[in-house]
Design a protein around this nucleic acid. Structure first.
Length: 278
DNA sequence: CTCCTATCCTGCGAGC
DNA sequence: TGCTCGCAGGATAGGA
């Protein structure tokens, strides 16, 4: 489900909800602890009585900042493929509800995840933790440059589309937006990463920023499962130009969009607009 | 080191 | 209708 735009959209909605209403945690209900990694039951229990101050995003993680006096810690949530958060009035209302944060005002914030690829953890120091220490730069980080990516990719023979999805290079780009960004950049997805020239790295960075920015503005992409905090679908699926468009006419040149599995994931491109050597 | 495959899960649509 | 198969937004471990 969730790549950067979906997690960012959810993060903004959650943060706005907590800014309007300082929610103090009464209790965290671990309904089904068997997510990808078992929930840290004791640490979740120890959050009772504390308040969620804000919600941010790093890579594809949601970060709930929880503080009391000088101590600051984070409840982190990775949504895997099918994770979602929603507000409710009871701890467990639906199949696959795994966690429910009960607040003093009787509201519940509930995590649901049918495929259980997501997980939660409680951290004091985010960037040095095992979940975050290896991650690459954010796509909108001003430090991100063609030189930076070219240096990381200098000896990699991996297809650029697969390379972009590796979170240690650049974070937030998943299977949908990797194909979409390369279409916007005019680069063939099978190009070996080390063969990309500086001017094409610049096009890739622009393509990534453009597609992620538009997707955020449109509340993300809903293929099947993704829902906003209030249960709405995203709108960006209507604006996809190559993803899941195999056999359709390219929006720019009318040639038919191709698809092929790369690195085990479906990949889409226009054979005329996207060249290995541009 | 790098690269590739299988794997963790449930649900849904296509095809028979 | 009902069954099986393949595939789905992620990310990792383990083998080559």
């Amino acid at each position: 489900m969730p790549e950067l735009p979906e997690v960012e959209s959810l993060s903004r909605e959650l943060d706005s909800a907590f800014q309007q209403n300082q929610h103090k945690i009464r209790q965290i209900h671990c309904l089904r602890p068997d997510l990808r990694f078992p929930m840290p039951l004791g640490e979740l229990e120890s959050l009772s009585g504390l308040s969620i101050r804000s919600v941010h995003r790093r890579a594809k993680y949601l970060l709930f900042q929880i503080s009391e006096g000088k101590s600051v810690q984070f409840l982190i949530s990775h949504l895997g493929m099918t994770g979602s958060w929603r507000f409710g009035s009871r701890a467990s209302e639906k199949k696959h509800d795994h966690l429910a944060i009960e607040f003093k005002d009787d509201q519940f914030l509930i995590y649901n995840d049918p495929r259980r690829f997501g997980f939660v953890d409680v951290l004091k120091n985010i960037e040095s933790s095992k979940w975050f220490s290896h991650l690459g730069l954010e796509p909108f980080d001003p430090k991100l440059s063609a030189q930076h990516l070219a240096a990381l990719a200098q000896s990699s023979t991996v297809a650029i589309k697969v390379w972009l999805m590796d979170q240690k290079h650049i974070v937030g780009v998943g299977n949908i937006y990797a194909s979409e960004a390369l279409f916007r950049a005019g680069i063939h997805p099978a190009t070996p990463a080390k063969k990309i020239r500086l001017k094409d790295w610049n096009k890739i960075i622009l393509g990534i920023r453009e597609v992620l920015g538009q997707a955020i503005e449109n509340g993300g992409t809903t293929l099947k499962d993704y829902r906003s905090l209030t249960g709405n679908s995203g709108r960006f699926q209507k604006l996809l130009q190559v993803y899941d468009q195999q056999g359709q006419a390219c929006v720019r040149c009318n040639k038919l969009i191709q698809s092929k599995t790369m690195g085990g994931r479906s990949t889409y491109w226009c054979p005329k607009c996207q060249k290995r050597n541009s």
